[in-house]
Simulated assay, not measured.
Amino acid sequence: MSVLSKAVLSKVSTLPLSLLGSMLGVVILMSGCEQNSSRGAEDLVITDIALEGLNDAFFTPLINSSSLSDEQKSCLEARDKNLGRAELQSFYREQFSEDEIQELEDFYTSDAGEKMLDYSNQQILIMSGEKVSRAVSAPTKEQQAQIQAFMKSPVAIKYIQLTSAEGEGSTMGALIAPMNAEFERCNIDLDMSEFV
């Protein structure tokens, strides 16, 4: 592992480096998903959730760290915010049946699913010391019941396992190649395969 890797990742996460892959997976799962104007008809909401989590919870802290040069920061800031979209779309379509994808889409676009994502994202920001521009109220009792029911469903359990797993066959595993290509493009000595 390079010196830059340890320095950057210590700023990105206060967790032990061995937990980075799992942490990123959980953050990707729990991050809120804004409406993505570049989302096409075939794009999945779960892809948007993962990409927003990756951008907000990994790239932003990395860019804001003191371990990168101004050139490296500028390079990462100019990255395609859809980095990894094709890989994730393919990965999710391989992992889930059309019925499972529809079940995930239905939940994450429902009022309860959107509330869970918004509230979870706010909690992540607060825990990381960020200021919250607008407070999001906690899910209602009815929404909590819907969230709990969904989280116990086989498709949710499968989704959580994929997003919190490490290595090949995981959400983060699907992102290793595009992330490493971006680090190489920006002359950053960081290899994600060391962490997932």
Rank of each mutant, 00 (worst) to 15 (best):
D80N: 11
N82H: 00
N82K: 01
N82C: 00
R85W: 00
A86D: 09
E87S: 03
L88C: 02
L88A: 01
Q89L: 13
S90P: 00
S90M: 03
Q95M: 09
Q95L: 07
F96V: 15
S97I: 15
S97Y: 11
E98V: 15
E98S: 15
D99L: 10
E100G: 13
I101T: 14
Q102S: 15
Q102T: 15
E103Q: 12
Y108G: 06
T109Y: 02
T109D: 01
S110R: 05
D111F: 04
G113P: 12
E114G: 08
K115G: 03
M116A: 08
M116H: 02
Y119A: 09
Q122T: 12
Q123M: 15
Q123R: 14
I124A: 11
I124F: 13
L125W: 01
L125N: 07
I126W: 11
M127D: 12
G129S: 01
E130K: 02
K131E: 09
K131D: 03
A135M: 10
A135C: 05
A135W: 05
V136N: 08
A138W: 09
P139E: 00
P139F: 02
K141W: 15
K141N: 14
E142I: 09
E142Y: 07
Q144T: 13
A145Q: 13
A145P: 00
Q146W: 04
I147T: 12
I147L: 11
Q148W: 01
Q148E: 11
Q148I: 13
F150A: 03
M151K: 12
M151G: 07
K152D: 08
S153W: 06
P154N: 15
I157P: 02
K158Y: 09
Y159A: 13
Y159L: 14
L162N: 05
S164Q: 11
A165D: 10
E166M: 15
E168G: 06
G169R: 04
G169K: 09
G173D: 01
L175A: 03
L175W: 01
A177P: 08
E182I: 02
E182W: 05
E182T: 06
E184F: 12
E184P: 09
R185D: 12
I188N: 03
I188R: 02
L190R: 10
M192D: 08
M192Y: 12
M192Q: 07
